[in-house]
């Protein structure tokens, strides 16, 4: 049984339809990437999983439907979300941002805080700093850390590398791998940066104008010339 199973998802922004009949499943313990251009519907797809959009279709987590669940219950049942614009709390310290992430997992605070600070030693050094004064890379770390504070089994990250320096991208990739390998998390990311996605994920889905148009392993997708030219920047 897939950990996350999305069936015939149609999502709407007002009257405009942003996703058309998207079906997707994520196996436990895998790293899955959804690749697509700006406006393809990647963020809408992730927001829908978190119960933040209007949609039809069904979404199952561990075999249970979460399609009409409230966001807080989705978080409490083990889904952590690091959104594209981070949505941090700018005038709160790094530590307080992380503490808000622990809202539904208060029993695990010391263990999770320890894990976050081990993954991102820089956050420990700057735990008293307000996030409004931080760099993009640090904010991404706070955002990932906040998601991890809810004790997730499935971590969803929207464009983990957007606007980040190449060195920080590598750091983030390393952390995402460790989360799967050392902490047994399942990871679902979206990316515009197809090379990053291909180097990290075992399974890649291609999203175009709100529809999934291709899927496969990185090897399969790289060898498809049409896709390679359109999405991965090499013929």
């Amino acid at each position: 049984m897939a950990m996350l199973d999305i069936k015939n998802l149609n999502a709407f922004y007002g009257k405009a339809q942003a996703l058309h009949d998207v079906s997707l499943s994520v196996e436990e313990g895998s790293i899955i990437a959804i690749v697509g251009a700006n406006g393809a519907g990647k963020s809408t797809l992730l927001d829908s999983i978190m119960g933040l959009t209007q949609f039809t279709g069904d979404i199952h987590l561990d075999g249970r439907s979460i399609a009409s669940a409230r966001t807080r219950d989705i978080v409490a049942s083990g889904v952590g979300y690091a959104p594209e614009r981070f949505n941090l709390f700018p005038y709160m310290t790094v530590r307080d941002n992380l503490m808000v992430g622990a809202y539904t997992a208060r029993g695990d605070i010391s263990r999770n805080l320890d894990m976050v600070y081990r993954l991102f030693p820089r956050l420990k050094e700057r735990e008293k700093q307000e996030t409004s004064s931080q760099s993009g890379g640090e904010r991404q770390m706070v955002s990932l850390g906040r998601a991890l504070m809810s004790s997730p089994r499935l971590l969803i990250v929207d464009e983990p590398t957007i606007g980040l320096a190449p060195k920080v991208c590598l750091e983030i990739a390393e952390v995402l791998k460790r989360l799967r390998d050392d902490f047994s998390l399942t990871v679902l990311i979206t990316e515009q940066n197809a090379n990053f996605a291909l180097s990290l994920a075992e399974q890649v889905q291609v999203l175009e104008s709100g529809q999934l148009v291709a899927s496969g392993t990185p090897a399969e997708l790289s060898s498809d010339e049409r896709l390679a030219a359109a999405y991965f920047g090499h013929a």
């Binding site: 978190m50 933040l52 409230r70 966001t71 807080r72 978080v75 409490a76 979300y81 959104p83 981070f86 949505n87 941090l88 709390f89 700018p90 005038y91 709160m92 307080d96 503490m99 808000v100 992430g101 622990a102 809202y103 539904t104 997992a105 208060r106 906040r146 998601a147 504070m149 809810s150």
Partner: peptide
């Protein structure tokens, strides 16, 4: 407001409603 879960949640909602929601704050 600074030291309890509810207090921090109040700050969180005031600063970023979506950020609060995805942290499990109702």
């Amino acid at each position: 407001v600074r030291s309890t879960h509810m207090g921090r949640a109040m700050q969180a909602v005031s600063m970023d409603a979506k950020g609060a929601a995805i942290s499990g704050v109702d």
